[in-house]
C-alpha cells in the first residue's frame, strides 16, 4: 500500500486555524492600509517642502508708475541677473486662470479681477541665494513688484505634513500593537485547542525543542498565509483608490489631492507586513509551547 508523505504534528485545517487565518488577514489588511497612508503622507511632506524651498514667486501688482509689459520685462531682467537664480519664467494669464479655476470656475474672470502677474523663479539647487536682497532690489527697481519666498507657506505646510505624518505613525503603532495582541491571543487559543497533541508527543519522549519547532513552523506558515491574503486585499484597495484618483476620472480639484502610493518601493515596504505577522505568530507559538511544556515534568 502506498503511503502519503508524513503529515505535520499540527492538523493542517482546523476550526482554530480558519479563525486565526481570518483574524490575521484582517489585521494584515488594516496594517497595510495604514502603512500605505503613512508612506503617502511621508512622500507628500517631502514633495511639498522640496517643491516650495526650491522656488520663489514674484508678484507684480498693477501700478500706475509703469506699464504691465515694462513691469514684467524689468522684473525678469533683474531676477535673471541675480546670483543663484537658475531660471525665471513669466506665468501667462491662461496658466494663472487654470490655477484659479478650481476656486473661481471657468470663464474670463481674470479680465474682471485685478489679479497680479506672476513670475516663477527656480533657484539653483545647492547654492545659497540672497533672497532678502533680491526682494529689496525688486521693490526698489520695479514698482509694484513683491517677492514671495513661500517661507510662511513652507513652514505651515511642513508643520501640517509633519503632524499628519506623526498621527499616521501613531495610528500605525496602534494597529501594530493590536495586531500583535490579536495574533498572540489567537495563536495561544489555537495552541490550547491542540494541547492534547503537545502532551502526547511529550509523553512519548519528544524533546521540547522538537515540539516547539513543529508548532512554530505551523504557525509561521499560518501567519504568512493570513498576512499575504491581507496584503493582497490592501494592495487591491490601494490600486483601486489610485485608479479613482486618476485625473481622467477625478472631479475638478482632485489633482491637488495626494495619490495613494505612487512609488513601487512603497509596495515593497508592504511586503514586510505579512513577514512580520508570520514572525510574531511563530515566536508566540514557540514561547507558548515552551511555557506549556515547562509546566510538565
Amino acid at each position: 500500500m502506498k503511503l502519503p508523505s508524513q503529515s505535520g504534528l499540527m492538523p493542517a485545517d482546523s476550526a482554530s486555524g480558519t479563525t486565526l487565518h481570518t483574524i490575521v488577514a484582517v489585521m494584515s489588511f488594516l496594517a497595510c492600509l495604514t502603512l500605505g497612508a503613512v508612506l503617502t503622507l511621508s512622500r507628500l511632506a517631502s514633495e511639498w517642502t522640496d517643491g516650495l524651498s526650491g522656488s520663489v514667486t514674484v508678484q507684480l501688482l498693477p501700478s500706475s508708475q509703469i506699464s504691465p509689459d515694462d513691469q514684467m520685462s524689468e522684473a525678469l531682467r533683474l531676477v535673471r541677473q541675480w546670483p543663484g537664480i537658475f531660471a525665471a519664467r513669466a506665468i501667462s494669464r491662461e496658466e494663472a486662470g487654470k490655477l484659479l479655476e478650481p476656486w473661481l470656475g471657468e470663464g474670463n474672470v481674470l479680465e474682471d479681477l485685478p489679479v497680479p502677474q506672476l513670475i516663477e523663479v527656480t533657484l539653483t539647487p545647492g547654492r545659497p541665494v540672497e533672497l532678502e536682497g533680491l526682494g529689496h532690489a525688486l521693490a526698489d527697481g520695479v514698482p509694484g513688484a513683491l517677492l514671495d519666498d513661500h517661507q510662511r507657506w513652507n513652514q505651515e505646510l511642513a508643520s501640517f505634513a509633519a503632524s499628519s505624518e506623526a498621527v499616521g505613525w501613531a495610528v500605525l503603532l496602534l494597529i501594530a500593537l493590536a495586531t500583535l495582541a490579536i495574533v498572540i491571543f489567537a495563536t495561544q487559543a489555537g495552541l490550547q485547542a491542540h494541547r492534547e497533541i503537545v502532551e502526547v508527543v511529550h509523553m512519548i519522549g519528544a524533546r521540547d525543542v522538537f515540539i516547539a519547532t513543529e508548532f512554530q513552523s505551523h504557525f509561521l506558515w499560518l501567519g504568512l498565509r493570513g498576512g499575504v491574503i491581507g496584503l493582497m486585499l490592501a494592495a487591491a484597495t490601494l490600486l483601486g483608490s489610485g485608479y479613482l484618483w486618476d485625473v481622467r476620472e477625478a472631479p475638478v480639484g482632485a489633482q491637488l489631492l495626494p495619490q495613494f502610493i505612487s512609488a513601487p518601493y512603497h509596495y515593497a515596504w508592504l511586503l514586510f507586513v505579512p513577514a512580520v505577522i508570520g514572525l510574531i505568530a511563530m515566536s508566540t507559538a514557540r514561547m507558548t509551547v515552551l511555557r506549556v511544556l515547562g509546566r510538565m515534568p
Binding site: 503529515s7 504534528l9 493542517a12 492534547e196 509523553m203
Partner: peptide, 9 residues
C-alpha cells in the same frame, strides 16, 4: 491518546 489528524501509520 491517538492523534486524530494523523493516519494509523
Amino acid at each position: 491518546r491517538l492523534l486524530d489528524h494523523l493516519t494509523v501509520f
